[in-house]
């Protein structure tokens, strides 16, 4: 009995879930079919989706990255520090560029730290990234003395509030990132190597794959994407609160990847699946909140989705 059903579900489960969610919302959520609803959802889902793409690559190597939320906080805390500095007041363009580039560079360095721990020192990924998960947010708060930084900076805020062809900038960014990484995974040497390392590390090594560099690479990418997501969050809010940026993002990102069909034991990297997973998780959250269900309940619903996704994955393996 379940053979056919689960295979169908596994293949199209994400799309079916999306369709069901949309129908439910159209039926019960007030004002769902408004442009405003679309904007809100796109701007909120973008950060999850961007981080989920990086997480998918890490999980594809049979790793995990718990530090994404903390990296977002560091990047998000740095940006206002830079564009509110005297240097940036003196040279606005250069300051704006620096406030985007420097946080991303710092994020990449965080990823390098994770990658070296995992790939060269052989630390278990969950422990290696736990280090930054704990310390990263602390670093971000030290940077800002624990203060909430508010600002009005139209140039910087564009990455969170700007629109292209009437749709939020970060929505387009997700599309671009997803396409780029889909291409990397499916068409490049690096992508094939990611899947080989996750699929059978010893076989990968024996065929000349630079396993350690590949592993380091995915943590660097994951951190870089987290940095971008951190900047977007700050830009949306016109405020930077190091204690809250990217809070619990690691869970949303892992959940999106799993719902999207990524196997936790590695060897698969469905990039568009992860984006779809992020959309589903965002829609569930939105559905419940828009219908007056408490945030706490929304968390339980999210857990339910993960359980379902894992169940469907199990079915597929047989």
């Amino acid at each position: 009995m379940p053979g056919f059903d689960t295979r169908m579900l596994a293949k199209h489960g994400g799309l079916i879930a999306l369709a069901v969610l949309l129908l439910i919302n159209i039926a019960i959520t007030p004002n769902f079919l408004q442009l405003q609803t679309l904007f809100v959802n796109i701007s909120q889902v973008a950060t999850i989706a961007i981080v989920a793409v990086g997480m998918t690559l890490v999980i594809a190597t049979a790793g995990i990255d718990l530090s994404v939320g903390a990296v977002m906080a560091v990047a998000g805390a740095l940006a206002p520090l830079i564009f509110l500095s005297e240097f940036a007041q003196a040279y606005p363009t250069l300051g704006l560029a620096a406030s985007i580039i420097v946080p991303i560079l710092v994020a990449l360095l965080c990823g390098l730290f994770n990658g070296v721990l995992v790939a060269y020192l052989g630390v278990q990924p969950i422990i290696a990234t736990l280090i930054f998960f704990i310390s990263g947010r602390g670093i971000a708060q030290v940077l800002t003395n624990g203060n909430l930084q508010t600002f009005a900076h139209p140039g910087f805020s564009y990455i969170g509030t700007g629109k292209i062809l009437g749709l939020p900038f970060q929505g387009w960014l997700v599309v671009v990132i997803a396409i780029v990484f889909w291409y990397i995974v499916n068409r490049t040497l690096f992508g094939r190597r990611i899947l080989a390392v996750g699929g059978n590390e010893r076989a990968a090594k024996l065929t000349g794959t630079p396993v350690r560099r590949v592993k380091t690479g995915v943590y660097v990418i994951s951190a870089g994407l987290s940095g971008i997501a951190g900047l977007i969050v700050v830009a949306i809010n016109s405020a930077s609160d190091a204690a809250r940026i990217g809070n619990l993002m690691e869970l949303d990102a892992i959940a999106s990847a799993v719902v999207g069909g990524t196997l936790l034991m590695g060897g698969k990297a469905p990039i568009f699946g992860a984006v779809l997973g992020a959309v589903i998780i965002q829609l569930v959250k939105y559905t419940l909140l828009a219908n007056g269900v408490a945030d706490e309940v929304a968390l339980i619903a999210k857990a339910g989705i993960i359980v379902l996704a894992v169940y469907v994955q199990q079915g597929r393996k047989e």
Binding site: R192, T209, K268
Partner: peptide, 18 residues
């Protein structure tokens, strides 16, 4: 099994790994 095949990968991907 342990050092040769990458089980989830296709025949094509396995053959061209090196």
């Amino acid at each position: 099994k342990a050092e040769g095949i990458v089980p989830e990968m296709s025949v094509r991907e396995n053959m061209t790994l090196a």
